Amino acid sequence: MAFSSGGSGGAMADINVTPLVDVMLVLLIIFMITAPLMTHKVKVDLPEANLEKKQEPLPTPPITVAVQDDGSLFWNDEPVTKEMLESRFSVEAQKTPQPQVNVRGDKTTKYRIVNDVVKTAQAQGMRKVGFVTVRDRSN
C-alpha cells in the first residue's frame, strides 16, 4: 500500500493500475499471436451423407448348439457331427448380419467338450457366441 507524502499522514486508497495494464497488454499480444495459429486446420475431404432411409436387414434367429454329456451335438435340435458343425458354422459366418450362436451344455458335460464347440465356432468366423443357462431357483 502506498503512503501519501502530504500532511494528512494516512494511507493512500488509490490502486496502482500500471502493472495491471502492463499484464493485460502482454496477454493481449500473446493471444493475438497465438489465436491465428490455433485456427489452422488440416483440410480433409469429408464424404457426403445420403439421407435416404436404408432398409435394415431382418434380425436372424439365433442358432442353438446343444452338447450332451456323451459328446453328441445338436444344431437347432437336429443331430450333427463335428464336421457338419464346422461346415454349418462357416456357412453362417458368411451371412450378414451374422446370427448369434447359443451353446447349451448339459449339466454333466465336461467343459472341454463345450470349449471345443466354442473354439470351432470362433475358428470358422462366428463373432457372437454365448452360453445358455438356467436361473437358480433356490433363492
Rank of each mutant, 00 (worst) to 15 (best):
residue 24 M to N: 09
residue 10 G to K: 15
residue 6 G to Y: 07
residue 16 N to K: 07
residue 20 L to A: 11
residue 129 V to C: 05
residue 20 L to V: 12
residue 44 V to M: 07
residue 64 T to Q: 03
residue 138 S to F: 10
residue 46 L to G: 07
residue 63 I to A: 00
residue 31 F to P: 03
residue 92 E to G: 00
residue 50 N to H: 04
residue 54 K to L: 15
residue 115 N to M: 12
residue 20 L to I: 10
residue 137 R to P: 13
residue 77 D to E: 11
residue 20 L to E: 08
residue 99 P to I: 00
residue 74 F to Q: 07
residue 48 E to Y: 05
residue 24 M to H: 05
residue 104 R to I: 13
residue 136 D to W: 01
residue 21 V to H: 01
residue 107 K to T: 08
residue 49 A to Q: 09
residue 135 R to T: 15
residue 20 L to Q: 06
residue 38 M to L: 12
residue 94 Q to T: 09
residue 57 P to N: 02
residue 76 N to C: 02
residue 3 F to G: 09
residue 138 S to H: 10
residue 133 T to C: 10
residue 3 F to T: 12
residue 97 P to M: 01
residue 117 V to M: 07
residue 4 S to R: 11
residue 95 K to F: 01
residue 67 V to Q: 02
residue 100 Q to M: 14
residue 100 Q to A: 12
residue 124 Q to L: 03
residue 92 E to V: 04
residue 124 Q to S: 14
residue 5 S to E: 14
residue 60 T to G: 02
residue 76 N to L: 03
residue 47 P to Q: 02
residue 51 L to R: 06
residue 31 F to I: 05
residue 17 V to H: 09
residue 85 L to A: 04
residue 36 P to S: 03
residue 114 V to D: 00
residue 39 T to M: 13
residue 12 M to I: 07
residue 68 Q to L: 09
residue 34 T to M: 13
residue 130 G to K: 15
residue 101 V to D: 00
residue 105 G to M: 06
residue 95 K to A: 09
residue 32 M to S: 13
residue 98 Q to V: 04
residue 75 W to S: 01
residue 120 T to Y: 03
residue 86 E to V: 11
residue 10 G to T: 10
residue 87 S to G: 03
residue 86 E to W: 03
residue 72 S to K: 14
residue 109 T to I: 12
residue 93 A to D: 09
residue 27 L to F: 08
residue 87 S to V: 13
residue 135 R to G: 15
residue 112 R to N: 15
residue 24 M to D: 12
residue 68 Q to P: 00
residue 134 V to N: 14
residue 104 R to P: 02
residue 114 V to N: 05
residue 121 A to V: 03
residue 99 P to Q: 01
residue 48 E to Q: 12
residue 72 S to A: 13
residue 69 D to I: 09
residue 123 A to H: 15
residue 71 G to P: 02
residue 12 M to G: 08
residue 101 V to G: 00
residue 24 M to I: 10
residue 11 A to Q: 13
residue 43 K to N: 08
residue 133 T to H: 15
residue 125 G to V: 11
residue 10 G to N: 15
residue 122 Q to N: 11
residue 90 S to E: 12
residue 54 K to G: 11
residue 34 T to I: 14
residue 82 K to V: 06
residue 20 L to R: 09
residue 38 M to N: 05
residue 133 T to F: 15
residue 58 L to H: 07
residue 93 A to W: 04
residue 55 Q to V: 12
residue 109 T to W: 05
residue 69 D to W: 04
residue 89 F to W: 04
residue 115 N to H: 11
